[in-house]
Design a protein around this nucleic acid. Sequence first.
DNA 1: TATTGTTATACTCTATAACTATA
DNA 2: TATAGTTATAGAGTATAACAATA
Lengths: 144, 144
Amino acid sequence: MTTATTTAAELAALLRPSILRLTRVIRNQRVDLSVTLTQLSALGTLNTRGPMGAGELAGHERVQPPSMTKILGALEEHGLVSRVANPNDKRQAIIAITDDGIALLAAERESRNEWLSQRLAALTPEERAALQAIVPVFDKLAQL
Amino acid sequence: MTTATTTAAELAALLRPSILRLTRVIRNQRVDLSVTLTQLSALGTLNTRGPMGAGELAGHERVQPPSMTKILGALEEHGLVSRVANPNDKRQAIIAITDDGIALLAAERESRNEWLSQRLAALTPEERAALQAIVPVFDKLAQL
DNA sequence: TATTGTTATACTCTATAACTATA
DNA sequence: TATAGTTATAGAGTATAACAATA
């Protein structure tokens, strides 16, 4: 048991580089070059949480609104999302994933996730369980 | 127990956006604007693993050699690392952390990690234990 | 006036390709 | 020729500041 001896500061110092390096490796696994990891993440959120405004989506993805403008522009260009004018508020358009977007997400699970899935499959059941358990903790940490 | 029902592909699809969002949040917590998160990570590796060549450090950090050139240029400019010519191989310089670099890392643990440390301190002991357990799993995953 | 989103701009991060110097 | 590293270039990722349109 080394748990008790690790302070929050020490854990932070360990965790940050570790996450940084893994993110680099994941980002480089680009099978389909048409959609970037950042765009894919936003698309996935639209799929999971349903249609919403650009600002709300930016909040979920933890990016600033101008960044989301750029992400959505790329997704719309590829026909993966559509904007429907909100009749109640003309400033806002409601953004929804399209059928093509849904199809792309499904294809991603088979092709683009392949690398990570293979790595995950090579882990022990305990390690996979640890990864699964970490997702809600990360989401809690990312809550500003 | 939902562990058994989650496939590797589903776990991958959950994990990637989660890591991505947390990285965004961490990256934005820049108290000391002189050194970036990327540079700090490389500096920490030099501190932990000792002096080494640029290529080897790039391998540890999972970046390509040209990226490391840039990172090291910034660190050297701030006097945080020094290069000593390798007498056995004039192509290579051995890079080591300086006293200033060590001091900066120490200061970081108190100031720049503060945000993350506070978040970590707000977690339950179980959640912190989960984070600590995840570091080696991430490192294993990042092994190409 | 406050809010939603965009445009303009700039900096960080990172890669690939081409190159230099040494082995 | 092979290796270690750098330079040149470019694209992805993201932010802040300023703006436009609407509420």
